[in-house]
Design a protein around this nucleic acid. Structure first.
Length: 410
DNA sequence: TCTGGGGTCCTATTCCTA
DNA sequence: TCTGTAGGAATAGGACCC
């Protein structure tokens, strides 16, 4: 999708159309989640701090964002995509790979892309760009080539559809900067630049043993394959969920362990609620702490499968006692991995003999938890929670892009 | 310049156990 | 019973994606 979050906000408020709009946290520690092409013309980019964005484009309209609405629209988009093929692999709310081998044989790849764009425009009222190619890597690069562009001269419309095939594949791939490859971020880019690699073409000329020596087996081989145009990864529908987490950056650093403990309970409850909605239980609880200097530590512990807030909170609070919070905590997070479908849950001795008096003890919380779920379904997520979780930030979804002070400001 | 949140994957190290 | 070893699980950290 093209500037997805912004496009959804413009649907809600058409007066935003054609203006520089930034979706993200407007506070001191907020970042840009999405910027309209008009804002990008001023140099505003996603993941940029909101302070910098405001400096670059003082006239931009800052909108907090409505994640629930984006999810809803995303669901509609996926419905549309599934009409073209059952093999849809979501990458993000606004992006997906579609294996249209069958439909493409019938109509031709570009024709499928044209119909998809038309359906998205007609039914969702949104603009998307489509790349058509034999592999995920080339399709991804092609879709980026099809997108609109913005620079200091203004906004330039994109082609909407780009097809890369046959003899055009390698020249197209090799002309890209190496940073365009999936898996090359700032750290890998520094290592590759040290080898004199600037483009994918440069990378393709580096001997495999040199790459493996610098980047390790997995990444070295992976990048060598991509640079040679080999990307056999299939489009996989229904990827299993691997982890669920919730983290928040505080407006100011917190060094009070009791206050942090209360936050842990609230976050554990949020994670457990999502875990139950996804129909999973998890075993390994991870606590994440980021300090003012941005160093980040994690602590994890594996226990019996769980999907209830008190059980998760008990482990996470125990982990909290193993880190130094007196330094001041900028970000706190709670997550769970080692997921399996809740139907496969095994009874633990702990759960069988647990006493209800201990939060997290086990079986005794199940009926209370399902009652909480029913109340939330009926009256909203803020309707009920654990006492320790009560705070002035009742809806975690509101703080997705950093602590915020203003719902909207110009 | 200042760096959010929700994820996935990889690597290195440590610990436990056969 | 002690010791060395190999493999797996747990743990911690980091890189990367949108």
């Amino acid at each position: 999708m093209d500037a997805f979050y912004v496009a959804v906000e413009v649907q809600k408020d058409p007066t935003l159309a054609g203006r520089p709009v930034v979706v993200g946290g407007a506070g001191r520690r907020g970042v840009v989640a999405s910027a309209s092409y008009e804002a990008r013309a001023y140099g505003v980019r996603s993941a940029m701090s909101s302070v910098v964005a405001r400096r670059l484009c003082p006239d931009a309209v800052f909108v907090h964002g409505d994640h629930a609405r984006y999810q809803e629209v995303s669901g509609h988009l996926h419905e549309i995509m599934h009409r073209f093929t059952p093999v849809v692999e979501p990458i993000a709310l606004d992006e997906a790979f579609l294996d249209v081998t069958a439909a493409g044989r019938l109509h031709g790849g570009p024709e499928v892309a044209r119909r998809l764009r038309a359906a998205v425009a007609a039914e969702a009222g949104l603009s998307c760009s489509v790349g058509v190619a034999r592999s995920k890597l080339l399709a991804k690069l092609a879709s980026e080539a099809a997108k609109p562009r913005a620079d200091h001269r203004g906004v330039h419309p994109g082609t909407g559809i780009e097809v890369v095939d046959g003899a055009a594949e390698l020249p197209f791939l090799h002309a890209h900067p190496v940073r365009a490859l999936w898996g090359v971020g700032p750290a890998t880019l520094r290592r590759l630049e040290a080898l004199g690699v600037a483009t994918v073409g440069d990378l393709a000329a580096v001997p495999l043993d040199v790459l493996v020596g610098r980047l390790g087996q997995a990444q070295g081989r992976h990048l060598a394959d991509l640079a040679a145009g080999h990307d056999p990864r299939p489009v996989v529908a229904d990827r299993p969920l691997k982890s669920v987490s919730h983290e928040e950056t505080f407006e100011t650093d917190v060094d009070d362990s009791r206050a942090l403990g209360d936050q842990v309970v609230r976050m554990a409850d949020a994670v457990a609620t999502r875990l139950r909605h996804s129909g999973h239980v998890g075993r390994t609880v991870t606590l994440k702490v980021r300090y003012a200097d941005f160093t980040t530590v994690t602590r994890s512990q594996t226990a019996a499968p769980m999907d209830e807030g008190p059980a998760l909170a008990r482990v996470a609070k125990q982990l909290l006692t193993t880190v130094d919070v007196a330094r001041g905590v900028r970000l706190l997070g709670v997550g769970i991995t080692g997921l399996e479908p809740s139907g496969q849950r095994q009874l633990s001795l702990d759960g069988l003999f647990a006493d209800d008096g201990d939060p997290g003890g086990g079986a005794g919380w199940t009926s209370a938890t399902s009652a909480v779920d029913r109340i939330r379904t009926r009256f909203g997520s803020g309707a009920i929670g654990f006492a320790a979780a009560a705070s002035d930030r009742p809806d975690p979804g509101r703080s997705r892009w950093g602590p915020d002070v203003a719902e909207r400001s110009t």
